[in-house]
Design a binder for these strands. Structure first.
Lengths: 197, 197
DNA sequence: GCGCGGACCTGACGAATGTCATGGGCTGGG
DNA sequence: CCCAGCCCATGACATTCGTCAGGTCCGCGC
């Protein structure tokens, strides 16, 4: 019996996945949590074989949580097929990455293979990740761009990050250039789409 | 037996929901589709009692699809708890609105009540919808803001909508004012968060 | 220890954006 | 019929943005 811990912030989706996996022979759902910061405790309490982690959750995103887990095999299960996320997931040492529009059989298959010691990554994403190369943004450019998506003015961003206006303008300009965009809105969208945010 | 048609673009979520609802006594999943433009045909083919519609799908969003359906009772089942969506859903004549982080029991309950002729709407959203009032944006302001989220310049938006630059600037300015924002990025975010887009 | 790249800053300049005043046409309600 | 509200437009204006050219620190690898 493979014991699963489910982490997803949407209650209904979580229960639905539990119902789905419950139908699979040899797989058993040992626990469920709805927040990133509850995962570690739940792992300690239920000792699952495999953790299914969503990325976007309150209380810490799945990629960060995954990096902190030891002694369990982790599969990222998310809506977002962003190449950058896959890369970050691999860096975090996860054993699998499945997108939410995979078929039910694929998920079960991934769980069994991961439990058997294999690593399982979405094919399309893996290809996209290779063809696109690494994130071209520097750390600071990422910070500024992230703050820019919030919608504030340059002065707001500067205050939030304790930088001067001119510096913020420069980082934005550089990020815009690297991403082939024409303004920050476009740059932010492009970076987000690739999971570089 | 209440017969359900499921419409959701994420395969895994769809199958998971089907598994979940399959466990409920008196409820049966009669069919599944993954695109908005396949719903009408599937309704004709499977004659369900209740349709569960996601909002964001390829091939036409759930709210538009719902407005075109007759002879079935529709429940919107979505991630997005945006007051404006609820209002539009009611205008489209749907019988229920459930968010994806409801409990499994709530969904089954909503299905049974809707099938019995009641209308079931998420309480929190209904309250938010009342307290926030109606969408203050005019049709054109919405169009322009929507185009602005794409990230282009004013000239781009003007070309896409066959308007003059000045007109676009005016609509944006007016939308920014109505939404209490300080630039279009902020305005776009605000409008999107409320489902006014 | 020298070079390199990243973080941080300044100042200046043109282009894009947001605001305002103003006006015309069109539609639906009183 | 007249008014209110939306749609579309013009032009002028101040502000904000995006770009560019510089410059100072610091850590790292060779």
């Amino acid at each position: 019996m493979i014991r699963i811990l489910l982490a997803d912030d949407q209650h209904l989706v979580r229960e639905a996945l539990a119902a789905l996996l419950g139908l699979e022979p040899g797989i058993e759902v040992a626990g469920q949590v709805g927040r990133g910061d509850e995962v570690a405790a739940a792992v300690a309490a239920t000792r699952p074989d495999v953790v299914l982690l969503d990325i976007e959750m309150p209380g810490g995103d799945g990629l960060t949580v995954a990096a902190g887990l030891t002694g369990v095999r982790v599969i990222i299960l998310t809506t977002f097929g962003r190449p950058g996320y896959l890369r970050r997931a691999m860096d975090a040492g996860v054993a699998g990455y499945v997108v939410k529009d995979a078929r039910a059989g694929e998920l079960a298959d991934a769980i069994r293979r991961v439990h058997a010691g294999e690593r399982v990554f979405d094919r399309k994403l893996a290809a996209a990740s290779l063809s696109e190369g690494a994130n071209p943004l520097t750390g600071r450019e990422r910070d500024v761009l992230r703050a820019a998506t919030e919608g504030g003015t340059i002065a707001d961003i500067a205050r939030r990050l304790y930088l001067s206006d001119g510096t913020v303008r420069n980082y934005l300009s550089s990020a815009i250039g690297k991403l082939g965009a024409r303004n920050r809105a476009e740059a932010a969208r492009a970076a987000e789409a690739k999971g570089w945010l």
